Amino acid sequence: MSTRPTGRPRLFVSNVVSSRVGAHEFHHLVTLLSSRLVEVASRDWEVTWAFAQDEGVRATVSRAREADAVVLLGGEDVSPDLYGATTGYPGESRHHHGGDLAQIAVVRDAVRRRSPLLGICRGAQIINVALGGTLVQDLQVPGHRTETLLQDLNFARHGLVVDRTRRLSRAILDTEVHSAHHQAIDRLGESLLLTATAPDGSVEAVEHTSAPVYGVQWHPEDPASDPGPLGALLDHLRIVTRERVAA
């Protein structure tokens, strides 16, 4: 395990883009979520972060390789051409193709190197697309988002159905999750396993069969939520980081 002078492991947090002209409310939400993640992670990790769209593939992969683990955070929809789909679907957001390519490269590199990585919301979708999976472009199932989220920051909440035979299940606490998404994983990518679903069957968590690469669709970093579930996921990353060094 590589460390800074503090002796703590290093965590690289990858956001999509640093600014969103004309989308102030959405950018404010993403910033709040990112700040919460960094706040909780900084208790046990040395945290660095950067923006994949701004830095590009080479710099983003380089930053990821310098860290002991990576977290890919939420943001806009993944570019549909990257999973064989088209534009023009309901609820379509802006796309940041360069950021998508950079984060996809990080996922593939993490799988090759068996390096710990956690994707949250869009991050989970990026994992799936990176490994050849597809996405539901506009989830028509109620209960995964609220129409007033950008105004009141109140997330939808629902339970989980967890496969307790999966490795990631150790880090998924028995509690309601906070949700805000209109897209979801559809066909699983190569070597991904289904770890948890929502009660309606929507994919909520996945993990790689052999690499410590995990994705959750919900938002444990919601500032209004208890930090315990987020802490549990980050602790899982620390555990698999130590296991990787010991192997």
Rank of each mutant, 00 (worst) to 15 (best):
residue 159 G to E: 14
residue 183 Q to D: 10
residue 125 Q to N: 03
residue 98 G to N: 07
residue 152 D to A: 06
residue 193 L to F: 08
residue 108 R to T: 04
residue 140 Q to V: 10
residue 105 A to L: 01
residue 43 R to T: 14
residue 85 A to C: 12
residue 196 A to W: 12
residue 193 L to G: 10
residue 236 H to T: 03
residue 221 E to S: 06
residue 212 P to Q: 03
residue 204 E to D: 11
residue 227 P to C: 04
residue 49 W to G: 09
residue 109 D to E: 15
residue 89 Y to I: 05
residue 158 H to T: 15
residue 71 V to F: 10
residue 119 G to E: 02
residue 97 H to S: 06
residue 35 S to M: 15
residue 123 G to M: 03
residue 146 T to Y: 10
residue 113 R to A: 12
residue 231 G to K: 12
residue 228 G to V: 09
residue 143 G to F: 15
residue 193 L to N: 12
residue 191 S to F: 04
residue 42 S to F: 11
residue 166 R to A: 11
residue 118 L to H: 02
residue 170 R to Q: 13
residue 57 V to P: 06
residue 18 S to E: 05
residue 25 E to A: 15
residue 106 V to N: 01
residue 156 A to M: 01
residue 16 V to S: 11
residue 123 G to T: 03
residue 209 T to S: 10
residue 148 T to V: 04
residue 101 L to N: 02
residue 138 D to C: 14
residue 81 D to T: 11
residue 130 A to G: 08
residue 167 R to P: 06
residue 82 L to I: 06
residue 185 I to G: 01
residue 188 L to M: 07
residue 8 R to H: 11
residue 69 A to W: 00
residue 140 Q to P: 11
residue 49 W to Y: 12
residue 247 A to Q: 06
residue 127 I to G: 03
residue 227 P to W: 09
residue 230 L to W: 08
residue 54 D to K: 06
residue 20 R to N: 14
residue 171 A to K: 05
residue 57 V to Y: 05
residue 136 V to Q: 11
residue 131 L to Q: 02
residue 57 V to E: 14
residue 109 D to R: 14
residue 62 S to D: 11
residue 29 L to E: 10
residue 196 A to P: 13
residue 32 L to D: 15
residue 8 R to P: 00
residue 156 A to S: 14
residue 124 A to V: 12
residue 184 A to Q: 02
residue 102 A to P: 06
residue 209 T to C: 06
residue 125 Q to K: 07
residue 241 T to D: 05
residue 123 G to K: 04
residue 222 D to K: 10
residue 143 G to S: 15
residue 240 V to N: 00
residue 97 H to Y: 10
residue 123 G to R: 06
residue 166 R to P: 02
residue 230 L to N: 10
residue 195 T to P: 07
residue 237 L to S: 01
residue 65 R to N: 14
residue 178 H to P: 01
residue 56 G to Q: 05
residue 47 V to I: 05
residue 234 L to T: 06
